[in-house]
Deep mutational scan, measured.
Amino acid sequence: GSPGIQSFLPPGWEMRIAPNGRPFFIDHNTKTTTWEDPRLK
């Protein structure tokens, strides 16, 4: 199987799917959430 997208996120980050189907990202380091992919910064 191919590695999940989770493995490509920075340490402490998690990806979830919102009720509307959009992915969002949780930064457990700062306890914040964002719509922006942290890998694109």
Rank of each mutant, 00 (worst) to 15 (best):
T30C: 08
W13A: 00
G12H: 06
G4F: 07
K31G: 15
D27M: 02
R39Q: 04
T33W: 15
W35E: 04
L9T: 01
R22A: 07
K31D: 11
P3D: 13
H28K: 07
P23F: 11
A18H: 09
I26R: 02
M15G: 01
P11N: 11
F25R: 00
N29M: 08
G21C: 14
F8I: 14
G21T: 04
G21I: 00
W13Q: 00
P11T: 10
G21E: 02
K31A: 12
R22W: 09
W13P: 00
I26V: 09
N29H: 07
P38C: 06
T33I: 15
K41N: 15
R39M: 06
Q6K: 10
G21N: 04
G4V: 11
I26Q: 02
F24T: 03
R39H: 04
K41F: 15
N20S: 10
H28I: 08
P10A: 05
W35M: 05
R16T: 05
S2W: 08
T33R: 13
Q6G: 14
G21K: 05
P10R: 08
W35N: 04
I26F: 10
W13M: 01
P3A: 13
H28P: 05
P23K: 11
T30V: 03
M15R: 06
K31R: 11
S2R: 13
N29K: 09
L40K: 10
T32W: 08
A18W: 04
N29Y: 09
M15V: 08
N29P: 01
R39I: 04
P19C: 15
N29Q: 07
S7G: 15
Q6P: 13
P10S: 04
L40R: 07
E36C: 15
G4R: 10
R22M: 10
F8K: 15
P23D: 02
G12T: 02
F24Q: 06
R39L: 05
R22E: 08
W35Q: 03
P10V: 05
P10G: 04
L9W: 04
I17E: 04
K31Q: 13
K31Y: 08
D27Q: 04
S2H: 12
D27Y: 05
L9M: 10
Q6H: 12
T32S: 08
L40Y: 11
S2I: 11
T33G: 07
T34N: 02
T32K: 09
I17L: 12
E14I: 07
G12I: 01
